[in-house]
Design a protein around this nucleic acid. Structure first.
Length: 799
RNA sequence: GCUGGAGUGGUGGAAUGGCAUACACGUCGGUCUCAAAAACCGAUGGGGGCAACUCCGUGAGGGUUCAACUCCCUCCUCCAGCACCA
């Protein structure tokens, strides 16, 4: 006999929808719980990754409901993006139609999994009700100088005739057509996330309930490093070259300096020098390589001499100025001092080009190795030598002292540099939020006035796949009158990167239909912050960083009074098949839909939670899914044979399980929670259960297998949904055993077990132990040195 | 290179100083059946022993402790992120 999962699941899904079972409403009298899973890109079909992500969230959400919280559990779609445009090119459909169809399909699939979403809060980022507020936010940022336009080097695919994000450049080639990516100077819109770098870094300390690795990755990405900017004066000139170093203790060993080829001073330095032609050739060659290629060719460091010299300000020594490809304009000051003896890259470069070197830090133990004899740079700590008045100091001490001394003398400045760059948000795409800006021949850049929002996407745009922004070809869209002077002007035709859309959707969910602002501050005050956020590790940096940035921006607008959006974060592991990520190209995809057909959504949910802890990788195993299904049938059969009274040991097992499952659920340890529920089921299977015991088991199962539990709950005679019930309470008295089993060890090895009354005295225990037959051979002729007694657990006898 | 994480039966995994391998999958044996499936019962880390039992065993080596998968040190392997970052 099998339970009829198909009928049951359909029945309850309909019922939940009809009764609006998961509708959330703010209620100041109740404690709220905002549970959020990262919303999906609507590709049409859900995959196992979605199933896992959303099942974890659903169990947490339903468990919190049973615990009495006012739970909000919303869902929506991150609906802008390139796949819709590609589909449009391929199938001659409109991106809007294609996306709408995919959303419909995806909703249906999510509903088949029985997830407890409040569908009345659904948002899609591609609807103008939503992206209107993207534009509003952008304009607010523009007003505050946080959105700006700047010309800079961007990745350019000559074959697609469009810019590429860094993520779209794979090993120097376009991810789509594999053409070699070039660098091109273009005017683009940027968001000044760097304005928030200190706060983004500082507030990481608040994120105690985030996985350590995510915090570490963000830390890494922001990349703060402290050191000194040192000013080298050019020989026969009063121009200064500023170099950044974190190792100011090695300044007396700087024997040359190196500039990035793009450095603004370079052209002046080489002008009229014998090296001019060679240097120009080198600069051109480096410029034609993308950053990715430049970083990838990590073997040989190339460079040329400029023909100019600079003066080391600490000892007035004349040092040559070089340019080299391993110095990057975007980091620090775009120039470095080179200390070959104490930096391995500088060492290799100096050897290659026969540049001078001098040791300034000596390892205490190695007497005095000459710089010429070195086989590599010494990058560790030691004692200063050849460093003027700082000789003899430890280099760590010298670091602070030299920095201060240089600041006092005005030849350096203690400085902090960051790796974090401003965020390029312009995309030459159609399917995104139009950037609400107008270019007027008379007034320049003019923002679209709030009252004219949204700037809507025209439904008809030509898709040729030939690149350039499709919007620029829509005359009705481009041509506009200047809001200021009414003269004929031109609209911005680029759209926003889709990460913009997802940087604040969690706020929109608080009041998804609000039409006076991105969100209703009162609703946000009640629901925010997100108590638990769940999603993939692939968003550890960008999405989470941008969301943190937007939250701080809203805080500055005084629309919210907190600085971090997500209190707790769980990053779920991937679903693997045969040890590999499931993907179309590998052909190892397991379709959730067919699993639902064969075993039911409940069994699928149960398996995916039981097979591994949420944050580790999960190996897909259809046999395991079968096992989950078998377990449910086992539970179903218990219901057919309920007794009038449960045995004491069954009650004991039940209360133990209630305690364990409650803590496990709170800590997202679903795999061990399920193991405990299986153990309880095994006990009941042997000894039988009454209605009371079985009801508790069903409630504990309900977050995991909601349809199954609802059905049994009804069979047990309940009229209301099981999610109106309360989480069972355990009775501490029942958990206390009268007799306890003690493990007896001799020298740490288990030799016997005895059962003794709880709270037995130590003397009595010793007496009992010495009478234990099993221990006689071990204790014979030996005197116990020591008795170690761990109450209610074990005795260890040392002989 | 830096940062973070992991390494336990045939497999997924449990145990955070106190009985290593819970719970499941698989395999083997049994009950029921004409038979099969389902269901149920039992066995299942390795070596030795007829057996009671015993020795070994959580990537490797060392240490702390009465007691270590768990804490400390050194190393190896794998995974992930960042990286000519000065």
């Amino acid at each position: 006999m099998h339970y009829d999962f198909k009928k049951i699941e359909e029945k309850w899904q309909k019922k939940w929808q009809k009764t609006r079972a998961f509708r959330a409403q703010a209620d100041p009298k109740r404690k709220k719980y905002y549970l959020l899973e990262m919303f999906p890109y609507p590709s049409g079909k859900i995959h196992m990754g979605h199933v896992r992500n959303y099942t974890i969230g659903d169990v947490a959400s339903r468990f919190k409901t049973l615990e009495g919280y006012n739970v909000m559990h919303p869902m929506g779609f991150d609906a802008f993006g390139q796949p819709a445009e590609n589909a449009a090119i391929k199938n001659k459909t409109k991106p809007a139609d294609w996306t709408r169809k995919c959303i419909k399909e995806m909703e249906t699939e999510l509903k088949k999994m029985g997830f407890s979403y409040d569908w009345e809060r659904e948002v899609s980022t591609c609807s103008s009700d939503y992206y209107k507020w993207n534009q509003w936010i952008f304009l607010k940022m523009f007003q505050r100088g946080l959105a700006y336009r700047k010309a800079s080097q961007v990745n350019w695919c000559p074959s697609c005739a469009t810019t590429l994000a860094n993520e779209e450049v794979i090993e120097g080639e376009c991810w789509r057509c594999h053409a070699k990516v070039e660098q091109k100077e273009l005017e683009q819109w940027y968001l000044k996330i760097t304005e928030y770098k200190e706060r983004l870094l500082e507030d990481l300390n608040q994120l105690k309930d985030w996985p350590g690795r995510v915090v570490a990755m963000q830390n890494n990405w922001i990349g703060k490093s402290s050191g000194v900017d040192i000013y080298f004066r050019l020989e026969n000139s009063d121009k200064l070259i500023s170099v950044f170093t974190t190792r100011v203790d090695t300044i007396f060993g700087a024997t040359y300096i190196v500039l990035a080829p793009e450095h603004p001073l370079v052209l002046g330095l080489i002008k009229g020098k014998p090296q001019e032609n060679e240097a120009l050739g080198f600069i051109k060659k480096v410029a034609s390589e993308s950053k990715v290629v430049r970083a990838a060719s990590d073997v040989k460091k190339e460079g040329v001499f400029t023909g100019s010299f600079a003066i080391n300000p600490v000892n007035n020594e004349k040092v040559p100025v070089w340019i080299a490809d391993y110095v990057l304009m975007e980091y620090g000051t775009g120039a470095i001092m080179a200390v070959p003896t104490h930096d391995q890259r500088d060492f290799l470069f100096a050897k290659e080009h026969s540049l001078p070197m001098r040791t300034v830090i000596r390892r205490t133990e190695d007497g005095g190795q000459k710089a010429e004899d070195l086989t590599g740079a010494y990058e560790g700590d030691g004692v200063q030598v050849n460093s003027g008045e700082f000789d003899g100091l430890s280099n760590q001490e010298a670091k602070t002292k030299i920095a201060q001394w240089m600041e006092d003398k005005g030849i350096g400045k203690i400085q902090t540099h960051f790796r974090l760059r401003d965020w390029l948000i312009s995309r030459q795409r159609y399917w995104g939020t139009p950037i609400p800006m107008i270019y007027c021949p008379a007034c320049g850049i003019v923002p679209v006035p709030d009252k004219d929002l949204p700037v809507e996407l025209p439904p008809d745009a030509p898709f040729t796949g030939e690149g350039g922004s499709p919007l620029s070809k829509v005359k009705k869209f481009v041509e506009v009158n200047c809001p200021k002077c009414k003269v004929r002007a031109r609209r911005e035709t680029d759209t926003m990167a889709t990460f913009f859309d997802s940087s604040w959707y969690f706020l929109r969910f608080c009041s998804p239909k609000f039409n006076a602002a991105p969100f209703d501050v009162h609703e946000a005050k009640y629901w925010m912050t997100v108590d638990q956020y769940i999603g993939g590790i692939e968003h550890a940096i960008l999405h989470l960083l941008y969301s943190r940035f937007f939250t701080k921006f809203f805080q500055d607008l005084k629309m919210i009074d907190f600085s971090e959006p997500f209190a707790k974060l769980l990053t779920q592991g991937m679903v693997l098949k045969d040890g590999e990520v499931m993907s179309k190209s590998r052909g190892n995809i397991v379709d959730p839909d067919s699993m639902i057909k064969n075993y039911g959504a409940d069994a699928l949910r149960l398996f995916i939670l039981f097979a591994a802890p949420p944050e580790t990788e999960l190996e897909w195993e259809e046999r395991g899914l079968e096992g989950a299904y078998k377990f449910l049938n086992r539970v179903w059969r218990i219901q057919e044979n309920l007794k009038d009274n449960a045995d004491p040991q069954v009650l004991k097992a039940l209360h133990k399980t209630i305690k364990k499952v409650g803590t496990d659920f709170s800590e997202f340890k679903f795999n061990t929670a399920i193991a405990s529920l299986m153990e309880l089921t095994n006990v009941i299977y042997q000894s039988g259960a009454d209605k009371q015991v079985f009801s508790s088991l069903v409630i504990m199962l309900s977050p995991i297998v909601p349809h199954f539990a609802e059905e049994l709950w009804g069979i047990l005679g309940n009229k209301e949904s099981i999610f109106k019930a309360a989480w069972p309470k355990y009775d501490l008295k029942l958990l206390v055993e009268e007799n306890v089993e003690l493990v007896i060890q001799i020298n740490g090895k288990v030799r016997s077990k005895i059962e003794v009354p709880r709270g037995i005295s130590e003397d009595k225990l010793k007496e009992l132990v010495q009478k234990d037959e099993k221990l006689i051979p071990w204790l014979e002729g030996k005197t116990p040195k020591k008795f170690i007694i761990v109450p209610q657990k074990l005795v260890n006898i040392v002989i």
